[in-house]
Design a protein around this nucleic acid. Structure first.
Lengths: 162, 162
DNA sequence: ATAAACCTTGGAGTTGTATCCAAGGTCAAG
DNA sequence: CTTGACCTTGGATACAACTCCAAGGTTTAT
């Protein structure tokens, strides 16, 4: 039997989060004290751990609600249903990864094209790339108008294609 | 000179999005007609394209606001400032990718452990994994109580470790 | 002259996951 | 019997980036 603060500490979440989960139907305390304090049982704690594990593999709370309803009525569901949820989530996670990989590649290219020095950004390759729709990014080598030996190193160093 | 719907169509965004950008200080039309219609110039369109390109590499609108203020006052900023923003964004994108890769791996393991068949979820490996804090996931081979030849194939097929 | 297609504004709603607050009640220790 | 730590509720706030709505004004084509 735990009070809200105890369960929160035990599972490393905030008491506010437990109230939030209750409001959204994920986890309700099994009982209350006479004065209204929430009392969670060990079974409640297990349910919370289920929620947290599901969160740890990427499920949203809405999806976890669905998983919990399956969990409580297993015999009326098939493995296919559960695996379907996992595979759907996997697909969406992979789609998100693909998008972020795209961002990553673009950002790496932008970073490589810029000397990153104290020179004025007037000829910054990054800004130029954002100004025009060219896919190729020109390195700002020699654009800054400083003595070449001073500032070109960073850029030439990074010229190897990705 | 474009009206809001024309610019929206040209750049493949919604007119609502342009009003939203205006409300948030990213892009204001250069003028209005007597009757109050927004009129965007070619320079406005270019600014919009800058915004969209920055979005396409992962910047948030708040970050784009910052980039735009640098863009309009380049000489008072250094390459280091711009590259710093790119590198910060790159780091955050990579952190997010790492998190999603973690989700992906976990989901793949869960998916592999489950036969995904029409059997009752009573012995579903996925649910069992979410119920207990074990890191290793037991395959549900033979747990369903059906004739072995019928349902074990999917699971044994996928036994190779990740 | 009228209908269709466009535009205006302010504001609300969405998704997701909390976090924080104020005003007040409860409980255990000293 | 007071202090401090805990608990209650409802509601506000936050982020991100839109998206939609209603009620009305404007433009354009026929």
């Amino acid at each position: 039997m735990y009070r809200i603060g105890e369960l929160a500490q035990l599972c490393e979440v905030k008491a506010d989060t437990l109230r939030f989960y209750e409001k959204h139907g994920l986890l309700s305390p099994s009982s209350r004290t006479d004065s209204g304090y929430r009392i969670y049982t060990e079974a409640d704690a297990e349910r919370l751990r289920f929620i947290l594990r599901a969160k740890a593999v990427g499920f949203t709370l809405a999806e976890i609600t669905e998983l919990l309803s399956i969990e409580l009525d297993k015999s009326n569901w098939a493995c296919a249903d559960v695996k379907g949820m996992v595979d759907d989530k996997l697909a969406s996670v992979e789609a998100k990864i693909a998008e972020l990989n795209h961002f990553q590649l673009s950002l790496q290219r932008l970073s490589q094209a810029c000397c990153g020095g104290p020179e004025s950004a007037e000829h910054c390759s990054i800004l130029e790339a954002l100004e025009s729709n060219t896919d190729s990014i020109r390195c700002e080598n020699d654009k800054h108008g400083f003595a070449e030996h001073e500032f070109t190193k960073a850029c030439t160093d990074k010229q190897d294609p990705i």
